[in-house]
């Protein structure tokens, strides 16, 4: 496509109640075209019952250069995992 088009990120919900999952992106000049293109690209085999498209430019991402500063500090803090206690016998859904 040529100038004027935008990239949209596509999220599909498999069935009501489940979280929307990111599945990829598509092009579109406007919201309506974006949602139709997303439908044609990502739900043609019955993958979902609901769709979101979000302008890719609206997504705020951690700059690649900063990823060490953002994420490395978590690497050696295993104590943040809630695995240091025993689960009582009666608990089933944890």
């Amino acid at each position: 496509m040529e100038s004027g088009d935008k990239v949209w990120e596509v999220f599909v919900q498999k069935k009501p109640g489940l979280a929307f999952k990111h599945v990829g992106n598509c092009h579109g000049y406007d919201k309506k075209m974006a949602i139709q293109n997303a439908r044609d690209l990502y739900t043609r085999r019955g993958e979902g019952r609901a769709l979101w498209v979000v302008p890719a430019e609206a997504i705020v991402a951690v700059p690649l250069d900063d990823s060490d500063a953002f994420f490395d500090p978590a690497d050696d803090k295993v104590y943040r995992h809630a695995t240091f206690y025993t689960i009582p016998d009666g608990v089933k859904h944890l």
């Binding site: 598509c26 092009h27 139709q36 293109n37």
Partner: peptide, 11 residues
């Protein structure tokens, strides 16, 4: 004319 429309027409 472009990828998305190609698939739409084929659908």
């Amino acid at each position: 004319p472009f990828l998305e429309e190609d698939i739409a027409l084929s659908n």
